[in-house]
Design a protein around this nucleic acid. Sequence first.
RNA 1: GGCGUCAUGGCCGAGUGGCUAGGCAGGGCUCUGCAAAAGCUCGUACAGCGGUUCGAAUCCGCUUGACGCCUCCA
Length: 486
Amino acid sequence: MRDLLIYNSLSNKKEIFEPIKEGYVGMYVCGPTVYSNVHLGNVRTFMSFDMIYRYFLHLGYKVRYVRNITDAGHLTDDSEEDKISTKARLEKLEPMEIVQKYTTDFHQILQKFNFLSPSIEPTATGHIIEQIEAIKTILKNGLAYEVNGSVYFDVLKYNETEHYGILSKRNIEDAIENTRALDGQSDKRNPQDFALWKKAEPEHIQRWNSPWGVGFPGWHLECTVMSTKYLGEVFDIHGGGMDLKFPHHECEIAQAQACNHQAPVRYWMHGNMLTMNGKKMSKSTGNNILPEEIFTGDNDNITKGYAPSVARFFMMQAHYRSVLDFSNDAIMASEKGHNRLMEALVVLESLKAEATSTLDVSAWKEKCYAAMSDDFNTPVLIAHLFEAVKWINLLKEGRESLMAQDLKLLLETLSVFVFDVLGLENTQESDDGSKKLDALVRILIDMRNEARENRDWALSDKIRDQLLAMGIQLKDGKEGTMYSIH
RNA sequence: GGCGUCAUGGCCGAGUGGCUAGGCAGGGCUCUGCAAAAGCUCGUACAGCGGUUCGAAUCCGCUUGACGCCUCCA
């Protein structure tokens, strides 16, 4: 098998992927905090890893893909309030109601985008006991301290023997020098220390018993605990958005080292941000667009709705490690390209085999795999797919030819990459309603063609123009009239 | 202030020390009753200034600009 290159954020270069166990991949991706609807930026990261998961599966790896749900709430500031309880109070709901609501929303959105389900989707609240055990271990190993019902990770102590900042390429010394004004209220010995367990104030709703009193687990612990529980103390790939690199992933490394005395992850992968109007999409700033708004067009930044597969294609046209800027013009251009690709696939199925092949399908297929195996380069893959689109059209016109086996190989390979790996869908799916619509439109097409034969241009143009006005476009071609619905 | 990333043709967006990215838009052509659609085809870009080199958009330095992280964030 060809080498698979993966860009490792730990070394900042592409490395040949060598799984810990031949044929198996353990992959952990930081999931959403379920206190509001996921926006398109959140979706991008998960989609990148969905594509990566799909490619591994296609290559024949047995993949255990773990993507968590953060439902324990993260501290937002020193007010001892966390996101989930804040939202719960606002909506007068139980925290677990919030969690349920947005978890369901998350799943529905991903389903629309044609995501594959992860192998395990663990929750933070389902692993409180494991988190408490991890804290005990870190305390026992002398890398944490208890203050006033809370437990903090001792970053300076850790840094004496390990490098805190190994992933984000920071030096703790620099961080200390550049620390902002102290808040004065913290129990921390050093501002760089982070909470493993936090004492719950009376008004804090989410709370659990622990050896240090009633409280709740810290920001970063759940991922350490759940990844090692399901994938082992050392596993192949850990992914997440670029914005989690520091401090979240840095803390994960420190916690895992403190527990197990070894680096937990072989390959760290970070997806880049989706921006809009040149700025990062973010829940807190409001600079974001919801998936549902993409589908319906109900957002000031877009002029119409777009199918989930079109949004997916839009994202796959950029490399996962590049910043991608969302705009109406950009996704509209993607929609046209997406549809052209899908139409070529339909044409391909109707092509007839010839006695000779004038195109080298095997070499083309090889290029597709080479693109994907070079750090999952979907934009280059898509460029190759469009080369196939061009071929298909030339084949249709009889300007090139393929033997049966090459035709089959082209169809199979194209299907694999378009549907299995990129996870795109042909949006012209036919349900019962659309079948009836299809029959209706065909009747009108027949009537129009009769009118055309009678040179009754007034009638034929009327049928054409009125259908177009309601979004049904007729397309006259050599093989008869086709149509598409917009 | 610290750390880091990036600046590509009208737009989006890859890649690379010398050889076509690709998509969208635009020009030309084919098809067509006229259109539309579709197809074919064309364009020759890499922020600025230095340097290395036979040769750089691709490597190095500086400048400018943008963005990300440093605080919850995919």
